[in-house]
Design a protein around this nucleic acid. Structure first.
Lengths: 200, 200
DNA sequence: CGGTACAAACCGTCCAGACGGTCGGCAAAT
DNA sequence: ATTTGCCGACCGTCTGGACGGTTTGTACCG
């Protein structure tokens, strides 16, 4: 029995019936396995959900790592990779990813400690962003925007269509654009931003 | 009996014992009320959580409405109000707000339909942002960044300290700054952004 | 003013169902 | 024959909710 098939079943259950109905019986039924059979592979519900979270977290790391590889070198490489991956690629926001993401909330409900793998991946991502050689805050705005987009998408709070993604991409790209000039005046990093930052 | 006291108790339970332990008994106990007494005011667990979500949603609307009132007129008023409220004000991210926010996830677990009040408030906020007279995507980046910040904060995915808020504020202010010039060339809105948007 | 009738707030017990997890068994593979 | 993978019946616990009873407040009446 492929363990991934069990995890897929769990994701499906969450996506279709909600977090509250993520029961061992439902998962077993969805995977065409008896409850005993399911518990043979995941001796505890916590272990099952932990595997769910870990798979989701690994998926994100794999994705943004691959995106980083495909992005040209230079300041903001990680941030630009994120934008390209999340806003330019139409294949990302699939129903499967939504289910997989919802499972993280199942973990939150079951046992908050189970989201630890997700925390690890986020720490890694933020470390990469911090080392991205961008003006202060710019990289963090990009990551955090993606986070917010993900939240809105998973919860269905706002509609996310191609037009909105395009607008976000445009604005974030604008934010990342001054990087080229910032690189030339690296010794005065932040000064240009502070100067441009005044308003009113 | 003040209904708010019961909701406070529910928030406290969620904050202290997690979503899974948000039971009627726990809430009743926390509020020093019998289960029967609790069910007298909220005939159903769904109703209780619905009230929780509604109170949280109303809180957000009240906050950003007040922030809008205190923000100078002009393009990006709503976006600037959000930045001032969430990144400049040190009083916002309290433990109480975190508990109240966590309750939304409890709603998600109990019955996804219960987050509807939250959806309504978000729709309103996004409508205000869309009418904010900003270059395309800029306002949405601001809101979505706040959303992401909120997510990271509630889940504890990343540490949110004053320095990070300052950096985000700086970057978002930079993003909002070009508005003044954009207003003068309103007829060509988006053109300036598109021009600045090229990279590589 | 006293008392009486009524309603609302609240209590504490009880129950039916659901859920996570255990366990003895079985059948095929080695 | 022993191990491994899986089954499915079973158990103890917990939880949401129902329900009948009790206290507290309130309006009305003699």
């Amino acid at each position: 029995m492929d363990l991934d098939r069990l995890l897929d079943a769990a994701d499906t259950v969450v996506g279709r019936q909600g977090i509250a109905n993520l029961t061992l019986e439902a998962v077993a039924s969805e995977a065409h396995v008896s409850k005993g059979g399911l518990l043979h592979h995941f001796p505890t519900k916590d272990r099952l959900i932990e595997a769910l979270v870990r798979r989701c977290a690994d998926g994100w790391r794999t994705r943004y790592t691959a995106a980083w590889e495909e992005t040209s070198d230079g300041p903001g490489r990680m941030a630009r990779a994120l934008v390209a991956m999340c806003l330019a690629d139409d294949e990302l926001w699939t129903e499967q990813l939504r289910q997989s993401s919802s499972a993280v909330f199942a973990a939150l409900a079951q046992n908050p400690a189970l989201i630890e793998p997700m925390r690890v991946v986020y720490a890694d991502l933020h470390r990469r962003i911090a080392a991205d050689d961008l003006p202060p805050g710019v990289g963090e705005v990009v990551v955090t925007t993606i986070d917010g987009l993900w939240l809105n998408w998973v919860l269905g709070l706002v509609q996310i269509d191609a037009a909105m993604k395009a607008r976000l991409q445009q604005a974030l790209t604008t934010l990342l654009a001054p990087t080229a000039s910032a690189r030339t005046m690296r010794t005065a990093r932040g000064g240009a931003v502070a100067r441009a930052g005044r308003r009113r």
